[in-house]
Structure formats: structure tokens, C-alpha cells
Design a protein around this nucleic acid. Structure first.
Lengths: 176, 176, 176, 176
DNA sequence: GATGAATGAGAGTTCATTCAT
DNA sequence: TATGAATGAACTCTCATTCAT
């Protein structure tokens, strides 16, 4: 991959994240990347082709967020790491996630990544820890984290640390 | 408001909900509404003007979803009604909410409606019911309901009833 | 049909005739017609749509060239009128035919108009006049006229009158 | 001339013949030839340069079609060979001629090759054979052959053999 | 000789918007 | 109120061509 190709992907990602896919013109992308507009099409054939490359790369990155949990064996740590998920995002991660979620809404895609493995893992963890209804606990935790995530991405979450401790306590304290 | 004006609003709402604001052309709106493109501008001046009317009307409607809770005095009912919120949405409500959330993401708006009154109400309820950390409980419930909402809007929530019962149990059982 | 729509058709016809379909840009057409480029697409949807309208109108006009012969009953007159065909073209007709032939070659179309009725008519005429092989005489006359036509369109035919008399003599003299 | 240069000429000829000069992009040519687009310009400087090479080579080849007749001394054979001209074209010849005619129409060129020598030859032959108006006979035969040629190139000539015999009879029978 | 990255101009087309009727 | 013709700017994409390697 040439340097300019990378620059285009970077510029497009930033613009898609801030303005959305449709509202971002290839002209704007090229200008931001400092290349000719033609080059965008030389490398990605269409604007949609560029989008797909970004989406594909994103999928990989999102997966890596979760992979640590899937290989965890201690059920308590599974819960802890899952709860930690939204709180440990770096500034750059947040920008990246914003892009993913924004595109998902714009393009009517449900989920960027198949979360079933993580779901199973959580189910097992809840069971091992003696929760009465592991499946519904899993769902609940998922939706909760999704909601927290959304708040973080929109910048409307304050006092993240308190919330994190609160949740870890809620889910783990009584089991220790 | 003339009949045609209503038709335009309706057509635009549906298109914005399915394709997004930017990706929907005034031409498509006019065709779907069965009116001339000129009429759209006669009534709303600009495409953005039309959007604002839709957004304003939406705000009213979203408020009505919550108003019932704000006037509830029994703390248990406050919790129960709050949890019920996402599960009682009709098909049409869902379509409407989808539009709201989709536009919020596309236009980088955090919240369509100021939820502070509801937040306060929930805080009081949690306190009355003896929860140790009412503020964080409120936040948590909010994020959870947000996450469930998102799942419902994206059509990825199955077995809603079990989840609802599970949550009502979780939040109310030990207090009864 | 609005006045501007006609102007566009006229401008496009002239440009297609001189430069060809592909080499003529919609921008050039609009400029020559003195209208905005957008209007071309408002009226004809695509450049190809504009072409089709021109082709369709052309078909009508070409038919009218031949219709006089089809309704002729005297076999000698049928021959005479057929031979006359290429020689009676006005300056404007020639421009028009040039467009038809040019587009036919560019677009790989064999014949703009179905000439079978004329073919039949000529066959009957040759038979009535005692020619030994009416079908092949018909074909031959057709190809000859086609060749003459091409020469006229390319401006390479000189002394048209002599050729016309010569041909009429050749085909009619010995039968009188 | 390197092998790749030949391939480019071949690919371009085929594409020009099927799609026309303007509608054929240098990108398509390079892809069909299996070479880089840059090489096209290394060898021919411009797209037009490539066209000229093809046209020049074509001229040579077209001349060769006629040269046999010009060196014929027997007037009957001159006529016979002239009539035979369009009927003896091989599949490949037809493809080649199609290119020539198509380009001639697209580029507004009248004749690819100077046919005056052939014209003179035919005039002499007609005179020797006692035709009353050799010049006009020559013109007529030329236009006829042109028309037949066009039909062959467009694939609309059927029963070529009958037509050929018919014409040879028409022009030579009464002289033997 | 040959490639492939890169460009700027221009292609066809869609857009939100205006205006006369 | 409502239409439909008309526009100019912007859109995605293709073009012939250049140049470093």
C-alpha cells in the first residue's frame, strides 16, 4: 500500500466520522488528503469501494477490542474486562468507534462485527459465577455496555470512573 | 396546515428514516408525496427548513413518551414504567424513533430531548426505595434502556418479554 | 414540447452529425442550445435518452422519404422515383441523412428503417416490366442507391444530373 | 517493432472497429493488449498517434486489394475482378474494412485511399468493351460496389453468390 | 523497453433552489 | 396554493497524459 493510499483512507475516515458517508464528497476527501481526486478512484474504483476498505479494516480493529476477553479463562475477569470495555477507549479509539457506529446507522447495518463468541463467553461466565439467568444477564450487560458506549461516543458521559467502579461492584462484589 | 403539506412531511420523514437526511433528495420527497418539487420549497423554504419542522414535531412526540412517568408518584411505578419504556413501542413508534436516532447520529446531535426531569424523578425513586447509590443507579438504568432501545430500533432484539420480566424482577423484586 | 427542448434536440442533432455521438459532450450541446446543462437531463434524463428521441424522430422522417414510392402504382414510376431518391435531397435533407448514417455506423446499427415494403414494391415493379430476375435487380438497385447516397453525403458526387439521366435511361429506356 | 507494440496496434484496431475511436479509451486498449497504459504512450506519444499508425498501415493494405486489377490488361478481367472485389473478402478482411469505413465516418474522411488509378482503368475497360458511356458506367459500378461493400460490412448481405453471378452476367455476358 | 502511481481537465448526472404562470 | 421549466453548483467518475523508477 502506497503512502498516498493510506492518506486517502485516513482522510476519508475522519470525514466520514464527522460528516457521514453521503455528506462527504470525494473532492473533500482528496483535498484533505492532499491528492488529486482521480487518485481516489485509481485506488478504490468507487467511493463505495473506499468505504468498504475502511469498513473491512474497521472490522479487524473492532475484533481486536474483544479478542482479549474471548481468551480469558477466569469468569470474574471475563466480567471485569467486559465492563471495562467502554472505559478503556483511548481518544483515538473513540474517534474510530464513532466512525463505525455512525456508518452503521447511516447504512442501516446492525452490527459491524459478529459478537456471538463474546456472548457465549459471557454466558458461561455468568453461569460459573452462579447467576440464576445467565442468558438474560448476558443480554442485559450487553445492552448496558452498548448504552454506555453510545454516551461515551457522544461525549455525554461524565464521571466515568465512578460508574465503572459501581458496575464492577454490582456484578462482582457479592461473588467474592 | 394543508393536506399536501402534511403529505410532504410524512414522505420526508419516511425517506429520512430509511435513507438519511443527506441521501434524500427533495426530488425524491416530492415524488413520494405526489406533489411538485416547487411546493416543498413554498412550504418549507429550504430542505433544512423541512428537517427542522420534522425535528420540532418529533421533540413533542418524544416528550409525550416520558411525560407519563414524570407525573407518577409511586417510586416502584416510576421504575416499572421506565423499564417498560422501550418495550411498549408500537410499530409506528419504532419507525418514528428510528428517524430520531438516525438523524441525531447524522447531524451530530446528542439528545433530541432534555431528559433531566426524568433523571431527577428516577433518582428520587431509587432513593425512596433504599438503593445505596441512586445517582449511579439512575445512570445505569438510563444507559441500559438506551442500549435496549437501539437494539429494538435495529430489529436485533428477540424475546423482549423475557427480558422485560427479568429486568422488572431485578429492579423491583427485592424491594417488595 | 417547450421551445428550449426543441433547441436542445436541434443543437444535439447538428453536433452529433458533425462530431459524432460519443465525441459530443452534453456541455457542448447545452452551450450551443443556449441552455443550462441540467436542462438537457431534465428533459431527456440521460444523454442516451436524448439520442433515442433524435433517432425516433429521424425514423419518421426517413420513412416519409420512401412513402411516396410505396403508394405509386405505375411500375415505371416506381423505378423512376426510386432512382430519383438520392438526387432530390435538399441541403437540409443531406445534413439529416448524414446524421442518420453517421450514427448508424457509430452505434453499429444496420438500418434505421425497415425497407422491406419498398423492397417488395420494387420486386413487383421489375417483374411487371419483364426483368428476368426481379429479386436480384431489386437488390442491385438498392445497393447502387446506397452507394450513391453515401457519395452524396460525403460530398464526393459531381455531375449528379448526368448520372441520374444515365440511370433512368439504363433502367427504363429499353422498356418503352 | 517489438512484440508488445504489435499487440497494442492489434488491440486498438479491434476496439476501434467495434466501439469507435472516441469511445475507446487508452485504458481499455492497454488492458486488452495486456500492457501498461504508459507503454501505449511510450510507443505512440498520443492516442491520435496510435490512430495514425493504424490508418497508415490500413492504407497500404487497402491498396493491395486493388493493385491486382490495376495490372490486369484484359478488359473483361478488369470488370470481373472489380465485381469480385467485395465478394472475395475473408472474415479478417471484413473486420479490417469495417475499421476503415467506421473510422472514415467517425473522422469525416471521404476516402481512405485514392481510387483514381482504378477509376481510369475501369473507364478504359468499359470503352474497349464498347460501352456507350464509359465514365458513367464506371461511376455506377463504383457506387454499386460501394453499396455492396457496406452491406457486407454490416452483415446484411445474404446469398452473395447469386448476386455475384448476376452482376458478372449483367456486365459481361452480352459482350462474349 | 516497460511499469504503475499520479494528475488535471472534463465527462455525464444530480442537487437544492428560483421563478413565471 | 400549486406547478413545472429552468438554473448553476456540486457530485461521482473517466479521460488522456506524465513521470519516476
Amino acid at each position: 500500500m502506497t503512502e498516498k493510499k493510506r492518506t486517502i483512507i485516513q482522510a476519508a475516515s475522519e470525514l466520514f466520522a464527522s460528516d457521514g458517508y453521503t455528506a462527504t464528497s470525494t473532492n473533500k476527501i482528496a483535498k484533505k488528503a492532499g491528492v488529486s481526486e482521480g487518485l481516489v478512484f485509481r485506488h478504490f474504483a468507487t467511493k463505495e469501494g473506499l468505504l468498504e476498505v475502511i469498513l473491512k479494516e474497521g472490522e479487524q480493529r473492532v475484533k481486536s477490542f474483544y479478542s482479549d476477553i474471548v481468551f480469558e479463562s477466569d469468569p470474574k475477569n471475563v466480567l471485569k474486562k467486559t465492563i471495562n470495555l467502554p472505559f478503556q477507549l483511548s481518544e483515538e479509539d473513540i474517534e474510530f468507534m464513532k466512525l463505525q457506529v455512525k456508518l452503521a446507522w447511516e447504512l442501516n447495518k446492525k452490527e459491524v462485527v459478529n459478537l456471538e463468541p463474546l456472548r457465549l463467553k459471557l454466558g458461561v461466565a455468568f453461569k460459573k459465577l452462579g447467576f440464576q439467568n445467565p442468558e438474560l444477564e448476558t443480554d442485559t450487560l450487553f445492552y448496558l455496555i452498548d448504552g454506555i458506549n453510545a454516551a461515551i461516543l457522544q461525549g455525554s458521559l461524565k464521571d466515568a470512573d465512578s460508574l465503572k467502579s459501581f458496575l464492577i461492584n454490582k456484578y462482582l462484589d457479592n461473588t467474592e
